[in-house]
């Protein structure tokens, strides 16, 4: 898995900031068959969490109808300088983590 995350590098205290997170994943639904007719097992990213300075600020459960390479964008209030950490967990147990640092003044 490879991910692309974005948050402002700096923000003022109390400012509303936009966070964007995308992960490379085929999101195989489990409803498809391969060229020989055998079912392709489901393998989707089923959970996404985002923590800011150690505290969880956003999480989402994903389902098979969500597109490949899922993209999320959400907002939060800049409270303190610290790491914003993103974690994706897939059905096959694979996880992907990404971190961006934000400086709040």
């Amino acid at each position: 898995m490879r991910s692309l995350v974005n948050a402002p590098k700096t923000a003022r205290q109390g400012e509303i900031i936009e966070i964007k997170a995308m992960v490379a994943h085929p999101m195989e639904t489990g409803y498809r068959t391969d060229a020989k007719g055998a079912p392709i097992p489901r393998n989707i990213v089923n959970r996404f969490t985002c923590t800011y300075d150690g505290e969880e600020i956003f999480s989402a459960d994903f389902f098979p109808a969500i597109s490949a390479n899922p993209f999320l964008s959400f907002t939060t209030v800049a409270t303190a300088s610290g790491p914003i950490t993103f974690t994706w967990t897939a059905d096959d147990g694979a996880t992907q983590t990404a971190t961006v640092e934000i400086t709040v003044t």
Binding site: R2, L4, K20, M22, A24, N69, F71
Partner: peptide
């Protein structure tokens, strides 16, 4: 660039 899914391949 932060929303274009093709950028995942550029990173790769």
């Amino acid at each position: 660039d932060t929303a274009n899914p093709a950028m995942l391949w550029v990173l790769e």
